[in-house]
Design a protein around this nucleic acid. Sequence first.
DNA 1: ACATCTCTAGACCGATTGGTCTAGTCCTGT
DNA 2: ACAGGACTAGACCAATCGGTCTAGAGATGT
Lengths: 184, 184
Amino acid sequence: MNGSTKDKLAWTAAKLFQERGYDGVGLSDILKSARVPKGSLYHHFRQGKSDLALAAAQFASREMLRIIDDAFLPAKTYKDGMTTLFFKCAKLFDLMGKWNGCPVSGILLNGAYNPMFRETSEHIFDSWIERVTAHATRLGLSENDAKERATHLFVVLQGGWDLARARQNSDELRRLPKLLSEGL
Amino acid sequence: MNGSTKDKLAWTAAKLFQERGYDGVGLSDILKSARVPKGSLYHHFRQGKSDLALAAAQFASREMLRIIDDAFLPAKTYKDGMTTLFFKCAKLFDLMGKWNGCPVSGILLNGAYNPMFRETSEHIFDSWIERVTAHATRLGLSENDAKERATHLFVVLQGGWDLARARQNSDELRRLPKLLSEGL
DNA sequence: ACATCTCTAGACCGATTGGTCTAGTCCTGT
DNA sequence: ACAGGACTAGACCAATCGGTCTAGAGATGT
């Protein structure tokens, strides 16, 4: 099968980059963990590590979009969907061993100064915000309100994730929906 | 002077780690940039790179505490101080070339899995929250309210900084005080 | 003047890095 | 059966990594 080895590489790379960042993971780590020889990596990803990182980020991004949909599709209100999303992320954080960073910032914002990495991470973040905005309008919010709230959601999720990581504790992540729904 | 070379190393390391993360910066980069030979580094920091990173993080942390005080000491209300802090951070972000990450997460959460790094970053974050909490109580908030708001402040600041970094634009950072003062 | 201590200076080390290259395996179409 | 492309396999490479070590410069106390 074509996709299998390539996907396994991207998936493994995503997992490791989230743990230790782009520069913190060597190709040998990825290859050992995925049990794939170096030749295969350079067959599927001609530019090597940087190509692999972009693919890994897209992989992680698609998973996040799936989580967003899972949270918002059954929701009756924006507040419900948003709260569910935070709880899902807190659970994911715990499952991942409480060490992982945000799927994309760990891969792309991290590590070497690389313009294409930065642009890709910008697009990915925007795609998440856009998806939440779409759910928000579907649930009755005005377009401007939806966009603002979606942006705030990711600001708070990102910051909450970092704090959870530093504390090795996802509790704060679960408390944050209150901030976003009630304000203070 | 004793402190001079040592401080120059810590300061240079802090700057570079914020740009490219712990694993993204080699000792040779730091030594070249600080114009200090390797022998001096290992004289002042016996454990080498990890020691240097801890010192650099403390350096960055002290600067952040100073910025917090600068924002809150002249403030008449918590809202004023908080807003000033965000604007100061936005300005700092622009001055730093719009690439740098959060001073501490770039250094400590990043890179190799290292328990002492994680603990140090937790303590540093907590010291920031504590400082803001102290300012908040001084400005009339109840103790519980102060602590909650201070925590939210850093969650939002952290997330906003990441978004600004991805977008290479500090505007969102300047819009966030509204979220924290008015809620939504 | 000399000994002593702090600090600078950089050559050097083994290990690991990302990347290249060739040989061989496997699958597919004819 | 066999030709040809897709893919695997890993030896090999120069460069760089973090870290060690020795030699000497500079300041200080006696």
